[in-house]
């Protein structure tokens, strides 16, 4: 089953749309509550990341009875140093974004902790594609 969402740059007000939709679907499938929480937290973080740092993008969700796979593909600017971005507390978020309560530098590390598989493809000036999978 395939679903898509659009992420608009700077639209924090609508952060959480994709994760809430995914949550509802997984509840219908009677997936373990702990697993639902993991994927929802990871997708929410990724949504906020794309809203805060990227020039918008898309979320593609693919679901079968064994796993959920979520791809967040944005339109740039890309991550120059991926190892640094994976460190807890490291953030390039602007003061404005931080004022709104985001940008604590926990995004990518938090995603990694919550999923079974994480792959980040990034190219500066082009964009970032994050693939995450949680097995049921």
């Amino acid at each position: 089953m395939h679903t898509e969402f659009v992420v608009v740059e700077g639209d924090f007000a609508n952060a959480g749309k994709a994760s809430s939709d995914i949550k509802k679907t997984l509840k219908q499938l009677n997936i373990d509550n702990g697993k639902i929480k993991k994927i929802v937290v990871a997708v929410y973080e990724a949504e906020v990341n794309a809203i805060a740092h990227a020039y918008g993008g898309n979320i593609y969700v693919d679901l079968d009875s064994e796993k959920i796979s979520v791809v967040i593909k944005d339109k740039g600017p890309g991550i120059p140093d991926i190892d640094l971005a994976m460190q807890k507390g490291y953030s390039t978020a602007s003061p404005k974004v931080r004022e709104m309560g985001f940008g604590a530098g926990m995004g990518l590390p938090n995603i990694k902790n919550n999923v079974d598989f994480l792959d980040i493809k990034t190219q500066v000036g082009v964009g970032t594609e994050i693939t995450m999978v949680v097995n049921f």
Partner: peptide
């Protein structure tokens, strides 16, 4: 919310 106990049927 659950559609079925069995994930395949729920799916």
């Amino acid at each position: 919310m659950k559609l079925d106990e069995d994930i395949n049927i729920a799916f």
